[in-house]
Nucleic acid binder design. Sequence first.
DNA 1: CTGTTAGCGCCTTCAG
DNA 2: CTGAAGGCGCTAACAG
Lengths: 345, 345
Amino acid sequence: MSKHTIQDVARKARVGVGTVSRVLNNHPSVRKSTRDKVLAAIEDLNYAPNPHARRIAGGRSYTVSVMLPMVSVEFYVRLVNAIEECLDENRFDMAIFPLLGRARIERYLNSNRIAYQADGIIMCTYDLGRLFPDGALPTEHPVVLVDNESEHYDSVFLDNYYGGYLVGEYAGRLGLPAYTMSLEDDPEGVFVSQVFVDRKRGFDDGVTSSNVQLVRDYPSGLHHQGGVQAAQKLLDEAVFPCTVFAAADVLAGSLIEEAGRRGLVVGRDIKVIGFDDQPWSQDMKLTTVHQPIEVMGRRAAEMLLERLSGYDGPPRKARFTPHLVERDSTLGEVLPAKYVAIAER
Amino acid sequence: MSKHTIQDVARKARVGVGTVSRVLNNHPSVRKSTRDKVLAAIEDLNYAPNPHARRIAGGRSYTVSVMLPMVSVEFYVRLVNAIEECLDENRFDMAIFPLLGRARIERYLNSNRIAYQADGIIMCTYDLGRLFPDGALPTEHPVVLVDNESEHYDSVFLDNYYGGYLVGEYAGRLGLPAYTMSLEDDPEGVFVSQVFVDRKRGFDDGVTSSNVQLVRDYPSGLHHQGGVQAAQKLLDEAVFPCTVFAAADVLAGSLIEEAGRRGLVVGRDIKVIGFDDQPWSQDMKLTTVHQPIEVMGRRAAEMLLERLSGYDGPPRKARFTPHLVERDSTLGEVLPAKYVAIAER
DNA sequence: CTGTTAGCGCCTTCAG
DNA sequence: CTGAAGGCGCTAACAG
């Protein structure tokens, strides 16, 4: 901590602490000359107010809490990055609170946990209705939801249903038997995000209008390893050529690799469609549904900041509409399949 | 926030606030009957002290900051989980501060950032000497390093050199030409953790004593995708049978898949050795170096708590010694290679 | 052992 | 417009 207090600044600037506080908080009624004096003193002393004291004294601490499931997926890395960038531009600080399993989450319910002591909260993915009967967080501070809709709070989310629907329609046009790789239920039942349910539902609806047959779903965990296992099962049982919708790019990646290993040609024998459009999906030539993660993260931060600046309207929904990005993983010609891979040394 | 204050508790228990404070802080000099009264009142009111006020008044907030590179790898998930578990057992709260690129880190230098306002700090992986000339964080509070040694602070780390050495020796015994997959330099140069350098150095030293030839190193990013690219290059150029040491299990995973895709038999044509012993490495039958992540995380938390309880000795080093876990990925017989994989529908 | 009383650093009246 | 004073919730002496 800087050893200096608001007192030091006041003394040095030869004003009262009240005045220093006013310039600190951008109060309009400070004569420019006075304000400059104070600013100079602050600069000289390299002073910065103590956030805890500010908080105690009734003001803001210029801090927001971001709560998110602690899983090692790229989505959150990108999201957090975008949120932090926006908050920082507005001189706000950010702390992250990982949601680690049900037991841990329940401890967070205690509203005195530091997580709730910020000026505002961004809650990601986690379904509030699931643990809080009223669907509300135990705090008076503004809350913004990401990856989740709500009647209580501003929310930022992708229209996952529509994204899935787009894929369903597309699969219909491809005219091949279709399979899906979805997200399996979390054993604890806490993080079964609506997101993946919506994608799947959208797909199912989108595909039914066609004469394509949805053969089977292969659920797995949201990581490469799980994806591979599901992919193996799928490829053991599938007929080719076929279409597969993977509810996340990472699963599509697993599938593509497993297919390659078996000598199947992606885009020809097996049309693969992902969801997310991660940066590496382009290299992978994966047809997928684009989700603007950074834009969404920034929007969430903005909405929270608006609330913190006094906006007090009804809960707003920032719904983002995804679009399909067509790449080689669905564009190959479908030929009779018979492949031989030989590795000889 | 709970609407109640220490005053409410005092009133309800019919004692002074000082007494309530004493029981809150486990002060010994409180008669059991009084303490019980207070405890009952606290229970009744569902009261919990305000951490900011505690910080302001007394010094501690019972909060620790964990700073870590924000990358989507399992290591940090497991580490954070273990740290939080230990902290929670000791009624400490935890907040996470992601280290997001060089520019962001430099902003953290300001010691008034909330990240530095905790009672103590656990800093992961990040090499302090790299950004702080004196290798010290701008804080008076205790600091514990994970994944990094230091003269200034308690540190918890694996003997990565030794782990690499074990693999090197093992590769020597296998007697095949050897390749390595290492971690490429971070373009920003901030997160080039010593960890991977040590593993590689250990390996090199371990292998030189044998008559095995270390042919080439294939660096890549620490994610599946990067691993696949490196693996492709490696497999294009390698002679078989051979041994490959991947500096992290995730890279070994990429290699195994890519090898499978090419019809190579892991354990026979290509001996793969990883590092970390992630939970899924067992399923993958990967020979690897075991790293007790949970134990290390817990130890880090413990060391910090000890400091917070007044321990004031010189910096301690908790060095963990890894061991090699031998599995099928190195146990196949080496036969002349000629493999055919046929996928026919 | 326990109640009372200063502050901790800051914001917010309330007079001037 | 600005200084002084009160208070946020809590801890830490200081007397009893």
